[in-house]
Design a protein around this nucleic acid. Structure first.
Length: 559
DNA sequence: AATATGCGCAACCGCGCAAAT
DNA sequence: GATTTGCGCGGTTGCGCATAT
């Protein structure tokens, strides 16, 4: 197509776009070459022809030269995009095939929002296409109350892959790796670690799952901008701040400024926490050596093999790809701590989603938009009625909870916390109830606590399985794999960290730490909402707190 | 039939990275 | 070493169409 032809078309198009917001913006529409205004908006066939012609002659690349040499009044970026998404040869058009869809789901489970990389595995498909497809899928399945990831995805991965090394690596035994994949109910795919190794079978691109921080994932998910952001506008500022700080491991400075007590924690409580939490695991509680020694944060995956001693904290693990949590890349940057591993404080901060946080954040965790790999949702939906059958009365009894109670109470807390914030509508526009009713991946389906969780059952507050193993290597007294590692109350309330009711000293240490972490005011709130540490009974949860505590955080009666 | 709403897609924007200067 | 340039990526926006009211 000749330049003249294009100019002719352009003139018409310019008229078409007089009212175009894009044109109105004119941000990048300034003169680029000789004062000509770069056109925006839809491409015409004439423009396409020019671009194709140019590429045929000059090849791809140097897109900024397109305008110069072809007379196309488009910026280089626009040209590249147009070429890549519409004009380049071998592009597939039309709806995705079932196989493609399956692959996308799998890839997304692996890579998160790495559209370009996903596109590399889908010949003829563009990253934009995949992205749009995924976003559409999110909405669609969200509406339908379905999980983003089908349950067979993991099953297949298990079947096809090298067990324990690929997709569902953490789904060893009867414990759901999905716990971590979906930690917090977010669509937390396995994490891609480019720096490690790639491809172990299931997919053309299936990196070995390395350590993954459920908390980090959650944080990033919570920090997602794409999905409306984490912190609801109604959230008190300090809560937001705390959350935000938690979401950004690199926040330290800001966070500390806002919460001087954090300094105190770093100074005083680090040791306490290391001693009280890390040490029981016989982990290196030197935060410098083991900056992620906060259990989950540190390569829960490493625990999955039940051999913690062989699992060196992998800082590389922190170079995780963005999972589908939809957090911003920049957020991830803060996790790219290969050069500067997070301090214990930073790790701890991930836990310091104070009670103030739990309401929204936890609820957010359950947001269906983040329900990737939420097979649990399916499972839950199937058993929701069963869970609901658990009487509220049972839930209101603080300590004699049955597994079913836990299940129902899980739902209760989520709802109540939503309501507590007086924001009945989630950022997605879903009522809290609807969110939880349709997507809460927390139900134990009324099953016995002794009953092994469904492999696909991932809960927002599930304790990453490896930790569970860690906590109870013999699995004889396996405590339900439900502990919100994000919540200090989880740490305090559960025996999950081996603190139990008998480790009052450690609990007190944690309590002290919590004071430092949260500050007195918040800590008081925390104590009020969660409970108190008594000398004779250890942590005594307020019944309300207990009832409202996600089942993940509720400590079952020890045998 | 008119209007409102929702949905899917194409395109744009901002940011970050890497190479070139 | 600092700046510029080119490019790619991910997120967001806005338009057009379909459906619901």
């Amino acid at each position: 197509m000749s330049h003249a032809t294009f100019e002719s078309d352009d003139g018409v198009l310019s008229q078409d776009q007089i009212g175009s917001p894009l044109m109105d913006k004119g941000k990048s529409g300034g003169s680029a070459d000789g004062g000509s205004v770069l056109k925006k908006g839809p491409w015409t066939s004439a423009e396409d022809a020019i671009l194709v012609d140019y590429v045929k002659k000059h090849g791809e690349g140097n897109w900024n030269a397109v305008q110069k040499f072809s007379g196309l009044s488009r910026c280089g970026k626009s040209c590249r995009l147009r070429w890549a998404n519409h004009l380049r040869p071998n592009l597939k058009k039309g709806a995705f095939s079932a196989e493609e869809e399956r692959l996308i789901v799998e890839l997304h489970a692996k890579m998160g929002n790495k559209w370009a990389r996903m596109a590399a595995h889908l010949p003829g498909r563009t990253d934009n296409e995949i992205k749009n497809y995924w976003n559409t899928r999110i909405k669609r399945r969200q509406r339908a109350g379905l999980p983003l990831y089908p349950s067979e995805l993991c099953v297949q991965a298990l079947q096809d892959g090298q067990q324990g090394q690929t997709f569902c690596r953490m789904t060893n035994g009867n414990k759901g790796h999905h716990d971590i994949l979906q930690s917090g109910g977010y669509e937390i795919p396995d994490v891609v670690f480019d720096s490690l190794k790639v491809n172990h079978g299931v997919l053309p691109y299936v990196p070995e799952i390395s350590d993954i921080s459920a908390t980090s994932l959650l944080m990033k998910g919570l920090a997602s901008s794409q999905y409306g952001g984490l912190v609801p506008p109604t959230m008190p500022r300090h809560k937001r701040l705390r959350q935000s700080a938690s979401f950004y491991p690199g926040y330290a400075g800001i966070f500390k400024d806002a919460f001087p007590s954090m300094h105190q924690f770093e100074d005083d409580s680090r040791e306490k926490l290391s001693r009280s939490i890390v040490h029981p695991f016989q982990m290196d509680h030197d935060p410098d050596k083991n900056p992620l020694s906060f259990g989950v944060v540190q390569g829960s995956h490493s625990f999955s093999n039940g051999n913690s001693s062989t699992s060196e904290p992998s800082y590389e693990a922190l170079k995780l790809e963005l999972p589908s949590l939809q957090y911003s890349e920049t957020d991830l940057g803060s996790w790219d701590t290969s050069s500067s591993p997070p301090t214990l404080l930073e790790s701890v901060d991930n836990f310091i989603l104070s009670p103030a946080r739990t309401g929204k954040a936890d609820s957010e965790c359950l947001s269906p938009r983040n329900s990737g790999l939420l097979d649990a949702l399916v499972y839950e939906s199937k058993t929701m009625s069963s869970a609901k059958n658990n009487s509220p009365e049972k839930s209101s009894n603080s300590s004699a909870l049955t597994p079913g109670d836990i299940s129902s109470s899980t739902l209760d807390i989520c709802k109540s916390e939503w309501e507590e914030y007086g924001d009945p509508i989630s950022p997605l526009g879903h009522s809290a109830s609807s969110v939880f009713n349709s997507c809460t991946p927390m139900s134990t389906s009324g099953s016995s606590l002794d009953e092994q969780p469904h492999p696909d059952t991932l809960t927002a507050f599930n304790m990453p399985e490896p930790l569970n193993q860690f906590q109870s290597p013999d699995s004889k007294h396996e405590i339900p794999a439900r502990c919100d590692v994000m919540r200090p109350d989880a740490l305090l309330a559960s025996d999950w960290f081996g603190l139990g009711s008998g480790s009052l000293k450690d609990q007190s240490a944690i309590s002290d730490s919590m004071v430092s972490l949260l500050g007195d005011d918040l800590c008081n709130d925390y104590k009020q909402s969660i409970g108190t540490c008594t000398s004779d009974q250890g942590w005594r949860l307020n019944s309300c707190a207990w009832n409202n505590m996600p089942s993940a955080c509720q400590m079952p009666e020890l045998p």
